[in-house]
């Protein structure tokens, strides 16, 4: 859906190794999940994409705990083997 000047009214940003950010200037985001529905209360929301969140459908940062295929790590210290 776009407005008259071609700007999307709803934008989805896929964060590598993380959630999908959803921002909409039409209405608050309303997500239907198995247990019912969950209405966002903030201007931009993050939807879980790893399936491990404790706050479905929202991201709660859990994707960071186990790393993941796209997670980057610091190089080891110079004094470490």
């Amino acid at each position: 859906m776009t407005d008259s000047i071609g700007t999307p009214a709803t934008e989805v940003v896929l964060c590598p190794g993380g959630p999908a950010l959803i921002r909409s200037d039409v209405a608050v985001v309303d997500v239907i999940v198995a247990e019912g529905q969950s209405v966002a209360r903030r201007p931009v929301v993050a939807l879980c994409r790893c399936g491990r969140t404790g706050r479905a459908p929202w991201c709660d940062g859990t994707h960071k705990l186990a790393g993941g295929p796209t997670a980057k790590t610091l190089p080891t210290r110079k004094d470490e083997p």
Binding site: C59, D60, G61
Partner: peptide, 15 residues
Amino acid sequence: HVEADAVHEQLAARE
């Protein structure tokens, strides 16, 4: 802050 900062970390770091 559990949900809010899961959004904010992406906004701050990426965007």
